[in-house]
Design a protein around this nucleic acid. Structure first.
Length: 415
RNA sequence: GGGAGUGUAGCGAAGUCUGGCUAAACGCGACGGACUGUAACUCCGUUCCUUCGGGUUCGUAGGUUCGAAUCCUACCGCUCCCA
């Protein structure tokens, strides 16, 4: 199975500009492919992992992986179909670049990976050079037809965001020139920007220049919802923002209908291995072997094997064990990945305790959950709203372990 | 610049003409519970705050009224059409 066939099998291919040409170029010798990401936040989330998975497969297939951290493009703002973006401050950008660069480095390792910041070349370009060297090669007529731009003509788009596709085109050309990058990979919404870059390369280097684009289908779950959120929150790759335990649980809880799709897409397991897991679902869905394997593989890829072990350990104590008998050392060890809040050693009414700790939004909500038997403190179900919570009764007076609902845990730390 | 709309709880959307029965229908989402496989489906409950007496809400600020999401005035935001 060649690179393209594999992507097709994995459900990772939406469009390619020239399938045969790309395979030929890949066979021809070492070439690079790139994925660009703008530093819009201080961490990547699961949505970002989608193009990176394909880039990683490209790398595994013998190619060179190049990643652009868009310091310059991030300062401009990539147009969304709906409204104008708010500009980020230079401080935010610098902060975000730092976080994202570290994560990408972890995912790709150092071998045969180049991580570059487009501010290195776009930042040096003067306005007149930009207009003479590049602007002349872009037709407004073509630019207006790009999907994102077209959808914004009604509501309005600033000149700044309108220019974004030109910058992305320059990026592609720059990498083509200095890193031997011939392929750009992106989400299906990136098609317009990618083709802009290919056109630019052809204008500057002649039509024989080899440059390709490849897009990935929009990832959705079996109910048609956009993939990658849990309870309305993004799943981040930064362990500080989304604990490895939560990350692991996100994958473990996937629906039977989605799990094979995700195994194909988000793991490096072989066809045979995935087929075997798919059969397992039919034979014994309750065992959830496929989900477990998925959670292990993806967590390992993003956070490492130690994080997988810790997440499984924690899952075990949370879902089967009697947490009341754990020692304070075990609590500190096992619940490090759970949301925590600071408390004082004084005993406190359960309602105030929950609201002050951020477990509940309001006292009304807190009372409702206590009355419904949704709150468990240190392994003991609390149903009386007048209960006093004394941090000194368990775990050497160091912790109070709160469970809300069936699976949500919070840890109060005595200061 | 001229004209026509529109702004309601996390989101969508009724209610406005015909003021009180409206803390505000309904849908989605979210949160709990039952069931289950830490699943899906389904079912039940909750969804502004509260010291459970009440308090504060319908873009903002005033006004009319015993009483305003509903009527009046000004302002602000958004959309469309014309120039």
């Amino acid at each position: 199975m060649n690179f393209i066939e594999e992507l097709k099998w994995r459900g990772a291919l939406n469009q390619v500009t020239d399938e045969a040409g790309l395979l030929e170029a890949m066979a021809d010798g070492k070439m690079g492919a790139y994925v660009g990401t703008d530093p819009t936040a201080d961490s990547l989330h699961l949505g970002h992992l989608i193009p990176f998975m394909v880039l990683k497969r490209f790398q595994n297939a013998g190619g060179k992986a190049v990643i652009i951290i868009g310091g310059a493009t991030g300062a401009i703002g990539d147009p969304r179909p709906t409204t104008e973006r708010k500009l980020l401050t230079q401080e935010q950008l610098a902060e975000n670049e730092k976080g994202i660069t570290a994560q990408v480095t972890r995912l790709f390792g150092d071998n045969d990976t180049r991580i570059v910041n487009n501010n290195d070349w776009l930042g040096k370009l003067t306005l007149t050079d930009f207009l003479r060297d590049y602007g002349k090669l872009f037709s407004i007529n073509v630019m207006l037809k790009k999907d994102v731009v077209a959808s914004r003509l009604e509501t309005g788009i600033s000149f700044t965001e309108f220019t974004y596709q030109v910058l992305q085109g320059i990026d592609f050309h720059e990498l083509w020139r200095r890193e031997d990058v011939k392929l750009q990979i992106g989400g299906s919404d990136q098609w317009g920007n990618i083709t802009s870059g290919i056109d630019l390369i052809h204008s500057l280097e002649g039509n024989a220049a080899k440059a390709f684009g490849l897009t990935i289908p929009l990832m959705t779950d079996s109910t048609g919802k956009k993939f990658g959120k849990s309870e309305g929150n993004a799943i981040w790759l930064d362990p500080e923002k989304t604990s490895p335990y939560t990350f692991y649980q996100f994958w473990l809880n996937q629906n039977d209908a989605d799990v094979v799709k995700y195994l194909k897409y988000f793991t490096f397991l072989t066809i045979e291995e995935i087929d075997t897991l798919a059969k397992e679902i039919d034979i014994n869905p309750g065992a959830r072997e496929a989900q477990r394997r998925l959670a292990q593989e993806v967590t390992k890829f993003v956070h490492g094997q130690a994080a997988v072990d810790a997440a499984e350990q924690l899952s075990k104590s949370l879902f089967s064990g009697d947490v009341a008998t754990l020692s304070s050392a075990q609590i500190a060890d096992a619940f490090g990945g759970v949301p925590s809040f600071d408390i004082t050693a004084e005993s406190k009414n359960i309602i105030d305790f929950l609201v002050d700790g951020g477990v509940e939004q309001s006292k009304r909500q807190a009372r409702e959950d206590v009355n419904n038997g949704a709150i468990t403190i240190n392994g003991e179900k609390i149903t009386d709203v007048a209960t006093e919570i004394a941090p000194t009764t368990h775990y050497d007076g160091k912790f109070v372990l709160v469970r809300r609902g069936k699976k949500k845990y919070f840890l109060g730390k005595v200061q």
